[in-house]
Each structure stands twice: as structure tokens, then as C-alpha cells.
Design a protein around this nucleic acid. Sequence first.
DNA 1: CTGTTAGCGCTTTCAT
DNA 2: ATGAAAGCGCTAACAG
Lengths: 354, 354
Amino acid sequence: MRRGFERSKADFGADRAATLASVAAAAGVSRQTVSNIFNAPHKVQLATRRRVEAEIARQGYRPNRSARSLRIQRSGLVGYCVKPPSPAGDPIMDRFVHSLCQAAERDAYHVLLFAATPDGPMAAYEHLVAQQAVDGFVISDTTVDDARQEWFQRRGVPFAAFGRRWSGPEIGAWIDIDGAAGVAAAVHHLAELGHRRLAFIGWPEGSGVGDDRCRGFREAAVERGLAVAGIAHTVNHYDDGRRAAAELLAQADPPTAVVCVSDELAVGCDTAIRDRDLVPGRDVAVTGFDDTSSAALPTVSLTSVRQPLQEVGDHVVRLLVDALRDPGADPEHVLLVPELVVRHSTDHPDRTVP
Amino acid sequence: MRRGFERSKADFGADRAATLASVAAAAGVSRQTVSNIFNAPHKVQLATRRRVEAEIARQGYRPNRSARSLRIQRSGLVGYCVKPPSPAGDPIMDRFVHSLCQAAERDAYHVLLFAATPDGPMAAYEHLVAQQAVDGFVISDTTVDDARQEWFQRRGVPFAAFGRRWSGPEIGAWIDIDGAAGVAAAVHHLAELGHRRLAFIGWPEGSGVGDDRCRGFREAAVERGLAVAGIAHTVNHYDDGRRAAAELLAQADPPTAVVCVSDELAVGCDTAIRDRDLVPGRDVAVTGFDDTSSAALPTVSLTSVRQPLQEVGDHVVRLLVDALRDPGADPEHVLLVPELVVRHSTDHPDRTVP
DNA sequence: CTGTTAGCGCTTTCAT
DNA sequence: ATGAAAGCGCTAACAG
């Protein structure tokens, strides 16, 4: 029977992991001095410090995390709950999670990832809090009737949200993308291209994010004095976007540009335009939201609103660290303006002013 | 100045978190008995057990994780390194990560997520090992010259891989998707539809995953006695797929079906077919790999190979847990056959036998 | 600036 | 079946 590891965990146990004591003994100083090297370097004389540091490097010593956490009563972990994958895939999850990790590590934190359990939405959070497994949470995808913020507040659990509160009183710190501003940027862009008659395809009403983006459309249209040729509300599926767009385009006085609440719906709209033997961007303009990989496909080439997720990660960690440091401080709220990525769906090479 | 939390962390400190001692005192038993409830329930009389359990529930007590980890010398954490997001987005990352979390939690583990640091590929791994922050690692995206497995072995660090070893001796347990079988399934499907002349668009040679899928194509073509009208190798971009497909289709005796190593390239191929005023699936068939959201778009409707990522998560956690339990055991290797999702790109409604 | 002491909350012998 | 005692590795308070 072949061994899986030349040097298994059991063998490894022979030369035990380095500890404060092993480093101290080898360097001929007290354990406290070694500890100080990490936690209060200025308290150690340069000569001894050098010597101890050499020994630390030689043994590859790092303070044991459990022991340290137990002593200082902090885990150094940030909890984040991943939502179940949707069939359509999540266009921003991978970027957000990576930026979250990076930002956390800059502040000497790590991310503890967990999935929701079947027994209630807060069960997994509760479990981690009771175990004192994490110092706080980052949450995302906040909804209109989100119960999490209030739950955290009631228990004094520090957190920071990617996504604002859509109802009720403000609780805790959040950072969010200004969806209304993103959609407004699309409207302004279209207005500058000469479009005077616009339509909007949004999600069903009541969804926080969706309503916000819809408001951005309405307000920008008013501000620019543009005609609104219709506002549709539909679930976030390609087919529904295609159907909604077909109806809008079949009107007596159809829009020359359609602003969509998501790339998924915008790609449906793109198809509806082609269904009428029109060319997206040349005959009818379209915009989406999220700058997904589908939008970037040259066959689609969709103008879309891109969320600055790197910055979101940086901010959300900062907000949490602030809450951890000073639980009594005023929670901060940050609204980031996203960026419009212009492609052929609004700016076709053969386009003439509508 | 408004307070962020009605009951801040500081206030919260007043009624400290429940401990073994607090539960024991309230229930009128020793700390040991409370501990036994969790770790050796059979050793406790039913009557006292009920009483203590009631008190545990009342106080919402859970054993402190740091203390427990320190005592038993295990963190209950599995490390997983997220790779930086690519511009194209990762089509399978969200599904894999979620299944990883779920599977880990079934075995009372949690996932510690971290990002690679600038200072060397193993620096982040090393840091976590030295701190004893995790009990082992799950790795994915194994490459031909992957140095991680050997590194883990040398240090006796338990791990399990999603992705086989592409070179060198076997080290550790892995689970992988049988890409060759997936591509072969596509070839067999095409053969059954009557196609006799196929081409393949793959990645540059030397990439483990890509070569494996290419081999699946060659072998299945031989097995079925099909003609090979060309094998292209290109980087994984839409435009390159389109260009490669254009060349293959411009030949004197072009293929009637093109098998692609990825959805990204397959969508490029789809465009190249349309560029020649042909209809994908009716005139020339195309297949991709990964069943991404782009493939599922009805405008594309791409037949594609879908990886069973839920099962991959289950297996990879099982393999790691096995390695943790018995470091000396033979590492297991699992190869999962993926499933072909048939759509219009191979089975167009108006299709006639080629 | 260095060394000693105590204890974070838990599990694991060992007695009873 | 239950209770007492020891100690995992660390940091903070204090004494020298």
C-alpha cells in the first residue's frame, strides 16, 4: 500500500510546530520578548530583535491563530454568506468576492464563507455569532424587507452592507452603487446622441434596486425633456425582455432607444430589434446594466453600466473595520457612481441621428 | 450624535457571552457535564441532560470556537484561494464555491477564503499553515506545472484538488471532470445526427484541460470513423474563435460540425457561421463547453457540456476530510463524466441530414 | 527593556 | 455518571 504523503501528519507531529516558547528558547530570551516582536516591536532592543527575528524566520514561526484569538477575544474573521447560484449565473459575484478578500487581507482579516442553511435565514448567522467564530459580517444583496440589519443591531453584531436599506430606519453602515445615476448616465448619453423618444424595460415593481434604476430613468428623461414611449416591468429573463421590447417597438410611435435595467433584458431587447430587421445601435439603441460577459460579446456589443466592484470591496471592509473599532460611531453611507461602458448598441458605426 | 447601535459592543459586554461555566452554574452541574453534552452525550444521564440542554438553549450557548480549536488543535476551517477575476468572468466559480461551502458545512467545517498575495504564489498558503489557521486546503484550476501539490506534500499539509495532476507523479487526492469524455459525448451526438466531417477549435497546446478535451475529440472521431477537417489552437477569446472558425469553413471541403473547447470560442464560431450566411445547427453544427449563460441565450442556443459542480464540491470535501482523518491512506482519484446539454446549435428545427 | 504570572474557554485525563 | 485539575499557545499587567 502506497503512502499518500512521504511525511504524513503523524510523522509531522515529531517536530512540532514552532511556538512562542520554542522560538524564545532557541533565541535565549523570554516568551514575552518574542510576543513583543509581533505586538509591540518598539519595546524590544534592536540587537535582540534581530536575533529573535532570525530565529522566527528559521523556525517559520507565526503566532497560533486560535490561541491568539482566544486571548484577545477576536477571531480576525469576517463572515460572508454566499447565496445559492441562480441558473443565469451571477454576473458580479466573482469580482465582488475577490475584492472582498483582498481588502480584508489588507486589514489582517480573512473571510469566512458560509452558505445559508435550510433552517431559517438567520440560523447560519446565529450559529457563527454564538460560537464567536467571526468578528462581524459583510452582507450583500439587501432587499426591501431585509431582516438582517435589524437582527444584527438587536444583538450588537457589527456588520457592513453592500446595498442600502430600502425601507425602514437606517441601521448600520452601507455602501451601494447609485443605480439611478448609472441609468441616468445612459439616458444622458442617448440624449447627446440625439435620441428624443426613450423607453425603459425594468423589473417588477417593489425590488429596491429595480425601482431605483427606474427612478433614475424617469428623472433623467424629465431633466432632458425627453419623451417616454413606455415603461415595461418584467422578470429578469431574456425571453421576457425580448417580448417586452417587441411590444414597445410595435407601438405607433416607437422609441428610438431602449434603456434596460439589466444586461439579460437588454440582450432580449437586442434580439427584438433584430427580429424587426432593424440594426441595434444604428436604428434603435439599447443599454444594459452590469457589463456582463454577454454584453461584451462583439455580436451583441452592448452599452452597459459597470459597477466599480473593486472599490465596493475596499469600502465595505473599511466600514466594517470602523464599526469594529468604534461601535458607537455614526454609521457611514457611501454611494458610488458607476461608469457607462459605451459600445455599438448605442454607437453603431453606420448610425445616423434619429 | 446618534448612536449606530442601540446596544453597542461595549454595552453588550455587560452581559457577557455564554460560556461553559455560565451554563454549568445556571444548571447546577459541573462544566465537564456541559462539555459532555456536546462531545459525549451518552455519558450524561437523560434527566440532567434535558435540564442542561434547556439552559443551553436559554442562554444560546455554543462552544467558543477559538477555545475549542486551541484545545483540540484543529481549526475546523478549510482554506480556498480565489483567483483574480478574468475580464471574461469565470463561468463556474460561483457554482463551485457555493457547493464547496455547503459540502464543508455538512462535515462541520467552514471555508476560509483568501486571495493570492503579490509576494509569491505560495506565500498566502504558507502564512495560513504557519498560523495553523486551517486544517487543510481545497485547490482548483490545477495546471501542468502546478507546484502546489508538491509543496503541500513536502510540508505534510492535507489537501484535496478539483483538477487532476497533469504531469509528474500523483500527489494527493483529486476529483476532476472528464473533459475528454465530455467532448467525446459531443462527437457521438454529432455522429448520430449524421455528421461525417468534423473540426475542433481548442486552446494552445500544453494546457492540461485543453489537451485532454482535444484528445477526447481525436479519439472519438477515430472511434466513429469520422473525417477530421482541421484542428485549430487559439487563445480563449471570442474573436479568435470566430477567426479560426472562418478559416476552417473556408476550406475546399469544410466540416459540417465544429466542436469547441469552450463556450467562448463556440460563440465566436457561431458568428463565423452566420458571417457566411449559414444557419448554426441547420447548416453547420457547433458545440461548446461549460454551459455558460451565454450558451443558454436563445439567440445562441448552444449545445454545450455541463460540469456537475454540485457533485464536485461534495467529493472534494469528502476527499479532504478523508485525508484529515487518515493522512496515511491512499489518496483517491475521482473522474466525473459531464453531461451534454443539447440545444439548437446542433439540433436546429429545420435541420436536414448533412 | 526584560522576565514572571495569570487566564482567555475549552477538552481530556484522572479520581471519585 | 459526575467533579477536579491540567494545559493547549497566546497576550496583558505588572515587577524588576
